[in-house]
Design a protein around this nucleic acid. Structure first.
Length: 420
RNA sequence: GUGAGCAUAGCUCAGUUGGUUAGAGCACCUGGUUGUGGCCCAGGAGGUCAUGGGUUCGAGUCCCAUUGCUCACCCCA
């Protein structure tokens, strides 16, 4: 049996209502905030991501789906959206048409990691990018939008964490200081932290090892290395969130694994999923547009994982949709009239009804069971004795009441069914 | 990339110290008298017990390998 590629999932008809609900909610919410949808290709030149996300990040160094096309060009399935949106903005000079571009997307993403709960190789994100302004209100707006969507879905158990990374020069200064501090304690660090010392020194703050926690207690803090402007930016974000009634925690360890972040970073996590608890993450990226060859434009954005949101929903028992209904099932009594029944069903469909008929030459009982399974509001019995008088029997499936109705007068059949 | 666990019907799972034709519930199909659903009743179909080897008189059950899935680490949505 040929099966779907590891880490990919079919979204089956029974799953679709949930997906559509979330997609609709995402679209209407973004519209309220005046974001316009953007769609970019599923793949890009590999160097876009290498340059945009950072060669040394985990995503680029070990998780990308990269291959050569027949022309020898290195291509990568998009592992995240920001670099692609920025590329499109630059390529089409969107910043010339409007100083601030507020864009949103819903799209599949690809990362070749080992799958686990809440982690797939093809997964779906919705998210936004606001490019062209350094206003801290936009940082706050990202959190507000994401939180609002999760909130409307009905998720509880959410925590918003924020942090600031300042600007690259401040961060470099700080990392040097931290490196100096940890050098003296290097031998006492756990093996994992020793590794991080070389790769991603800030993540040593994340360690759960007792000796590491002890050491990090007295470590220098990034906040002490931030300039006035960075501090003010962060303050404005915090104040905006407070006034909008969004509770947050400041988490100095929230660094995020993408190189392009500056100033604000944030994450919304759920206690209702497994160990991959981040439903949403984002931050500001003021150097990225220039780095990808565009004007020196500030930007901020976020992405949320739809599968993780659905996982949280499942564990919180929400997003339970009522079964779909059809308006009418045409039950055929006389097999010789199969053609007429099919044509009648299609007339009803043309008049706007959700109508179904039998395609399996099944017994009346079986047809009725089918109508019931389809949650039909009405059944139209076609081809019985009443057919001689050009009539059929229309039955209300809820009340059980049934009456003859003229089959030539489609309008009145439709009328009656629509009225309920 | 590293580690652990699991693999029996479409789904969720039983299957007793290895012992005849491998079971249940749900779902599916057909019926329960002339042309009527849900509930109920009767019956039916559906499994090379993941695959390949091995041990044994005998393997769904024990051993090995392979594949797949799941969860966790790293990291991230």
């Amino acid at each position: 049996m040929i099966k779907a590629i590891t880490g990919t999932k079919d979204i089956l008809p029974s799953d679709i209502p949930k997906w559509r609900y979330i997609e609709n909610l995402v679209r209407t919410t973004f519209e309220k905030f005046n974001y316009s949808e953007i769609r970019t290709p599923i793949f890009e030149e590999t160097r876009l991501f290498a340059r945009g996300i950072g060669e040394e990040t985990d995503i680029v160094s070990k998780e990308m789906y990269t291959f050569e096309d027949r022309g020898g060009l290195s291509i990568t399935l998009k592992p995240e959206m920001t670099a692609a949106v920025v590329r499109a903005l630059i390529e089409h000079s969107l910043q010339k048409k409007s100083q601030l571009n507020k864009l949103f997307y819903i799209s599949p993403m690809f990362r070749q990691e080992r799958p686990q709960a809440g982690r797939l190789r093809q997964f779906h994100q919705f998210g936004a990018e606001a490019i062209g302004s350094n206003d801290p209100f936009l940082d706050a707006e990202m959190i507000v939008i994401a939180y609002s969507i999760l909130n409307q879905i009905g998720l509880k158990n959410l925590t918003v964490t924020i942090n600031t990374l300042g600007i690259p020069s401040e961060r470099e200064m700080y990392k040097n200081e931290l490196r100096g501090y940890l050098k003296d304690h290097y031998n006492r660090l756990s093996n994992e932290s020793k590794r991080r010392y070389g790769t991603n020194i800030l993540r040593i703050f994340d360690s759960k090892e007792e000796q590491d926690i002890e050491i990090m207690k007295d470590a220098p803090l990034l906040i002490d290395f931030l300039g006035t402007q960075s501090l003010e930016h962060f303050d404005k974000v915090k104040n905006a969130l407070a006034k909008l009634g969004i509770k947050y925690e400041i988490e100095p360890r929230l660094v995020r694994g993408l190189d392009y972040y500056t100033h604000t970073t944030f994450e919304i996590a759920s206690g209702s999923v497994g160990s991959q608890s981040a439903l949403c993450g984002g931050g500001r990226y003021n150097g990225l547009v220039a780095q990808l060859g565009g004007d020196d434009l500030p930007g901020v954005g976020f992405a949320a994982g739809i599968e993780r949101i659905l996982l949280a929903c499942e564990n919180e028992n929400i997003l339970d949709f009522p079964q779909d209904k059809i308006d009418v099932y045409v039950a055929l009594l006389d097999k010789n009239l199969n053609d007429d029944s099919f044509i009648l069903t299609n007339r009803l469909r043309q008049k706007g009804l959700k109508a179904e008929c039998d395609y399996l030459s099944r017994s009346l009982k079986a047809q009725m069971r089918e109508a019931n399974k389809l949650n039909a509001s009405y059944v139209l019995f076609f081809g019985g004795e009443e057919y001689k008088d050009k009539k059929a029997v229309l039955k209300n499936m809820e009340s059980g009441v049934q009456a003859d109705i003229s089959i030539d007068d489609i309008e009145s059949i439709v009328e009656k069914i629509k009225r309920g």
